[in-house]
Amino acid sequence: MADNNPYPGENNTGHIWDDNIRELDNPVPGWWMIAFWASIIFFFGYGVLYPMYPIGQKPTQGVLGWTQIKEYQEGLDEVMAVRAEFENQLKEMTAQEILANPGLADYTEASVRVLFGDNCAPCHGGGGQGGPGYPVLADDDWLFGGTVETIQQTITMGRKGIMTAHGKILSDAEADKLVDAIVAGDPQSDPNFLQKGCIACHGMDGKGMQMLGSANLTDGIYRFVPGEGQSIKDSVKQTILHGVNDVTDPQTREAVMPSFGDRLSKDEIKKLAVFVYKFGGGQ
């Protein structure tokens, strides 16, 4: 083909289509060659500096000694360094003192959120809104007390509510009457409240005793919310008849908060207490 090339002298490859479309053999542009060689140099340079060639069990390590985990650790250290300033201050302070210092309280709230999410939120909800069968932390109705110290104690030791089942000493009709009085917010109006010994735990006025962890029966806030298809009255009645954590009654309510004293450090618990306190119900 080259012998009778109809377009001599223009450096074509001899490939001609449709009579006049030719493939020219022009040199590659200079900038392209520069980029080409630069990328090859980059490739080898990169392999020297960073882990790359899979030789043996481990790839070559690279002279910079860079690893992903190291970079992560450095990032983490940076965050820790920023936090250290606050954390050191918190160590010296009681929960009460932290609450009195708006800046540190804000820091505590922001920094302990993850810990709350991991340890507490599964039962109490991310915002302390409680869950089915688990108490609300954002209201001001506390079974064992709502000061920040008590909250701290609750987290450290855990809690276990106790109420004996009253199914054996109350007839169905008596139970209904008692339920009516409680839901109306006035338990004392039913003589059984006194006669069946409710006052021993819930107090003369029915407002509960935080020493015992007994519930306030007058404020309309219930530790056990009604289940599927239950009314509030059904639910209160169930608690009265079967009790809480009463091993003799298979239908009893279960209410146990595990202790976190051996899972979390003192400082972590202190911060969590501040966090819970600030949900809005702390006293």
Partner: peptide, 8 residues
Amino acid sequence: QPLFVLLS
């Protein structure tokens, strides 16, 4: 979370 709470 929660949208509201009932107080005592």
